[in-house]
Amino acid sequence: MGSITLAAGKIPATRRVATAATGESVAVRWILIGVAVFFLALFIFLPLAIVFSQAFAKGIGVYWASLRQPDALAAIRLTLLAAAIAVPLNLIFGVAAAWAIGKFEFVGKTLLITLIDLPFSVSPVVSGLIYVLLFGLQGLLGPWLARHDLQIIFAVPGIVLATIFVTFPFVARELIPLLQAQGQEEEEAALALGASGWQTFFRVSLPNIKWGLLYGVILCNARAMGEFGAVSVVSGHIRGRTNTMPLHVEILYNEYQFVAAFAVASLLALLALTTLLVKTVVEWRARRQLAESAAWNEEGQIA
């Protein structure tokens, strides 16, 4: 029973409560909270409110009509398509890469970690340009692609590729610390008990990382749907064909179609809010899983 109280005592221990010695006076506390709330209101709540108020400025009818424009629908479809391709691919890649990094020692590990981080450190516009330079008409592979009648740049494949590139790190980044914290004793135990590699993965490894994995997927999805820069470079902005939602919003806005622009933007905002909500729940579970893993290992060693 001792270990229960120990384990239970360990997790809330990360939550710090200010004591008299480290706490601030009441006035300072109110000022700090006030400043934080002011900035939140100014930079987050206000813009969000404006998005929705602008979207509904001419009534719900107009709002609906602008969402049902063929171009808007095409943009929504394309965004969903890009995410539907990019997220599962990066899910598989992320798990595989995190698995290799978290559980094995091999030459070039540091290089792999650096490469996974690359999309984070490179400006999305540059990412897009890379694809133009590679696949564009004047690009490296352009002539060959043209000869075979394949179009990547200014077409859907380019958008999908750019989306995959910018959302590349999310899943892997989320899983690496988790897998490293867990070590591989449980996998070894499963193997010694006669489980096959796949059985070990699905019955032992996957359940141990599921919250971290879900968290990574949510972030990956949010970015895939909201990406602007990289997609903008490779898209060519062909209405109804190569416009994603963020690009469509920009075009509408530049054409002074404020209601329509904000209507589509409100969808993205809704997506963000939903993501935030799901993320909070999942993040809480994922963090608990990581804390449990750490406490579990630590306890095993000390107890």
């Binding site: 004793e185 449980e186 359940p207 449990e292 290992n297």
Partner: peptide
């Protein structure tokens, strides 16, 4: 073989 690990390696879930 039956293997018992030093830190037990029980399946935590």
């Amino acid at each position: 073989v039956g293997f018992v690990f030093q830190h037990y390696a029980l399946f935590r879930h």
